[in-house]
Amino acid sequence: MLGVPRGRLALIDGFTADQLAEFDALVARRAAGEPVQHLVGIAGFRHLELAVGPGVFVPRPETELLAGWGVTLITAGATVVDLCAGSGAIALSVANEVPGARVYAVERSPAALSWLRRNAEARAAAGDTPIRVVEGDVTDPAVLAELDGTVDVVLCNPPYVPAGAAVPADVADHDPYDAVFAGADGLEVIRPVIARAAALLRPGGYLVVEHDDSHATVVPALLRADGRFVDIEDHQDLAGRSRYSTARHVADCTP
């Protein structure tokens, strides 16, 4: 609205009449429950600002921990797959923080794909390693089948809220339903993601998957039951809630 970086807001003398009218309109929209990120058109995520709006899930600070854990595993030349990429927050953070990584971002929603492509183009123009955007359903065994057995790290922030669970109004009214809810137990996407990741990963590769705080024991149990993962751990977010699980793929295992 003012056309200045956030760090210069304190130096602004005041609003013009037109700016004040626009500000009042934005406040009214926020009071009605519209997310701040939709009002300003961007969401901060780690070191990036990403374009967001209707049709794409707004990335949350909790997911920054998952992305950061993954970044510690990734080196230049590594092959990385972001499943359920949405705005591209995770994939683009990897490309930004690990130059030379070979990053794929998979998304099925046409609306989310438009935001993902927009953000991918903007980050490539800014000098980050370009990512490969893939339109597809992460539960489909054919998606990226050409990479099976070669991927170093799979990262995923899937829909995981149990259907019918209470969520804040800005989530219920503005985030895409299919990006939030995943069946009666919230595991409708995580189950096939585990199987797909196990096929994609090379021996020794890692899966990092976000989940609902009610899944602290359930997701690690699913990883153990698959039979192709070891070093399974669950991790908490900064509020002390169970937030994501990690696991390492092993060779010569039968699911």
Rank of each mutant, 00 (worst) to 15 (best):
V154K: 04
D137S: 10
G186S: 03
D137H: 07
A184H: 11
G149P: 10
D140F: 09
C156K: 07
E188K: 10
E135R: 14
A163T: 15
G204D: 10
P176G: 04
A163V: 13
G149M: 11
V171C: 12
A199G: 01
A197C: 05
E188C: 01
E146A: 13
H174W: 14
A172G: 12
L200R: 06
P159S: 06
E188V: 00
A166R: 15
D152Y: 09
D140P: 10
D185A: 04
A179M: 08
T139R: 15
D137P: 05
L187M: 05
G136W: 12
R191D: 04
F181C: 03
E146G: 12
L147E: 07
P141I: 01
V143I: 14
P176S: 06
A169G: 14
D137F: 08
I190M: 06
V167M: 13
D170E: 15
A195M: 00
D173I: 00
P158M: 04
Y177R: 14
D178A: 15
V167G: 07
P141G: 07
F181N: 08
P159Y: 06
D137M: 10
P159T: 03
V143C: 03
D185N: 11
P203M: 01
V143Y: 09
E135Y: 01
A169R: 15
P158R: 03
G164K: 07
G204M: 02
R196S: 02
A184C: 00
A163C: 09
V193T: 13
V151Y: 12
L201P: 06
A184S: 15
V151G: 11
A182Q: 02
D152E: 12
V153W: 01
V193N: 00
P203E: 02
V171G: 10
R202C: 03
P192V: 04
P168D: 10
F181E: 05
R196E: 05
I190D: 02
T150F: 07
A165L: 02
L155H: 08
P176T: 09
E135V: 03
R196M: 09
A145D: 12
G136R: 12
A145R: 13
A182L: 05
V151D: 11
E146W: 00
H174K: 01
G183A: 04
A163N: 02
D178W: 12
L144H: 10
R191L: 03
A197L: 02
L155Q: 10
D178M: 13
T139A: 15
Y160H: 07
D173F: 00
V180F: 08
A182F: 09
E188T: 13
A197T: 02
E135S: 13
V138C: 13
L147P: 09
A163D: 14
L200A: 10
R191N: 04
R191W: 07
D185S: 10
D140C: 08
D185L: 08
D173Q: 14
V151P: 12
L200T: 05
G164N: 06
Y177C: 00
